[in-house]
Amino acid sequence: MEKIRVYAPATVANVACGFDIFGFAVNRPGDEIVLEKRTEPGISIIEITGDDGRLPKEVAKNTAGIAIQKYLAHIGREDQGFNLSLHKDMPLGSGLGSSAASAVAGVFAANELMGKPLTQKELLPFAMEGERVACGSAHADNVGPSLLGGFIIIRSYDPLDIIQIATPLDLYASIVHPHIEVNTKDARGILDKEISLSTTITQMGNVAGLVAGLMLPDYSLIGRSLVDVIIEPSRAILIPQFAEVKAAALQAGALGCSISGSGPSLFALSKGEETAKQVAEAMRDQFALVGIGSDIFVSPINQQGPMILPN
């Protein structure tokens, strides 16, 4: 195979109480990469669309480019060159893992073209390098679910220990992306550096409860556990109308609602697709009341991760 077209899905990270340790994949939106072998070594980013000209074509500064570069060095094939085209099918700075999806699509495509010398899970450290370029931190709560699909727990970063857990088949995510932008570095900078013991205990209970609720499955327990007492209170001030949108989601039947990643997107989890659609519309309508346009997405938990598309 000389050429491949790959789609990698968007993700919801943190999932309320699980800052930097929880994430799950959704079906849409996502990023698409076309990767083609060439005879000369090196990676050439020949086209980027959907980014309004904001993303760098310099390999060392591009999330997909650096992920592929690190991967080739690891397998000892820096002699292999690629032409890369990237189509951004999701907004930048959305809190939906935009940089992660690009990195995952790139390294997954490269591994396929090289005959799959590494397992999908073994590609994770290279995708994480794309995150380091994007926001200064090689976190895995977006790249993990985008690469592996499903709901992911990062138990440890050193050594890297990733766990996939089962989720209820009727669990749906509603995502609303308001047409504002929150910078990931800014969203991290606003966080408190120290938290109290009582707050930590509350958060730990919610983390454990959410894992148990997903695995049992127990929708009531999922709802009671989708509470973030550490990160959400700080980041909520960056998102206009946050409290009102969250209240609208819960009133429409959501189990729980919080910020997706570093924002400004919000997500809610619901039992059943119809409820999830009603929740998404209620969230969108609440933003519209103050003149903020938004996009909505409704999806079950994506269990597949990246997909190979017809060329």
Results as ranks from 00 to 15, higher is better:
93 G>Q: 04
118 L>P: 05
128 M>K: 06
67 A>T: 06
182 V>W: 03
134 A>Y: 02
116 K>M: 14
176 V>T: 15
101 A>C: 15
154 I>P: 00
185 K>C: 11
73 A>M: 08
162 I>S: 06
85 S>Y: 03
120 Q>N: 12
135 C>R: 02
145 P>W: 08
94 S>P: 00
118 L>H: 06
101 A>V: 09
148 L>W: 03
151 F>D: 07
89 D>L: 14
102 S>H: 05
117 P>Y: 08
124 L>Q: 02
116 K>W: 02
137 S>G: 00
80 Q>W: 06
160 L>E: 09
81 G>C: 12
191 L>G: 04
201 I>Y: 03
111 N>F: 00
85 S>E: 15
204 M>D: 02
145 P>Q: 14
84 L>G: 01
117 P>G: 14
131 E>R: 13
188 R>A: 11
209 G>C: 15
185 K>Y: 08
121 K>S: 14
209 G>F: 11
137 S>P: 00
82 F>L: 11
171 L>M: 10
122 E>L: 04
73 A>Q: 15
120 Q>G: 00
173 A>T: 13
146 S>Q: 08
121 K>M: 12
154 I>E: 09
109 A>P: 01
194 E>T: 13
175 I>D: 00
89 D>P: 00
80 Q>K: 15
114 M>W: 03
197 L>P: 01
164 Q>N: 14
163 I>P: 00
97 G>F: 03
155 R>V: 03
178 P>S: 11
128 M>N: 07
171 L>H: 06
79 D>W: 09
71 Y>Q: 04
191 L>N: 11
172 Y>S: 03
197 L>W: 07
164 Q>C: 07
120 Q>S: 11
200 T>L: 15
159 P>R: 06
133 V>R: 04
68 I>K: 07
98 S>K: 03
172 Y>I: 08
119 T>L: 12
86 L>V: 14
157 Y>E: 10
124 L>A: 04
110 A>K: 01
79 D>C: 09
140 A>W: 01
193 K>A: 14
75 I>Y: 08
97 G>K: 02
120 Q>H: 05
194 E>Y: 12
119 T>V: 05
100 A>Q: 08
193 K>V: 15
82 F>I: 14
149 G>E: 09
94 S>G: 11
98 S>V: 06
126 F>T: 07
92 L>W: 06
209 G>M: 12
171 L>Y: 00
152 I>G: 00
97 G>I: 05
106 G>Y: 09
142 N>M: 07
158 D>Y: 13
132 R>S: 11
201 I>G: 11
141 D>Y: 02
107 V>I: 14
73 A>I: 11
72 L>P: 00
100 A>K: 10
110 A>E: 06
96 L>E: 04
199 T>H: 03
189 G>S: 12
90 M>K: 02
103 A>L: 10
176 V>P: 02
106 G>M: 11
116 K>A: 13
169 L>K: 14
146 S>N: 03
168 P>H: 11
192 D>M: 12
112 E>S: 13
72 L>E: 09
113 L>M: 12
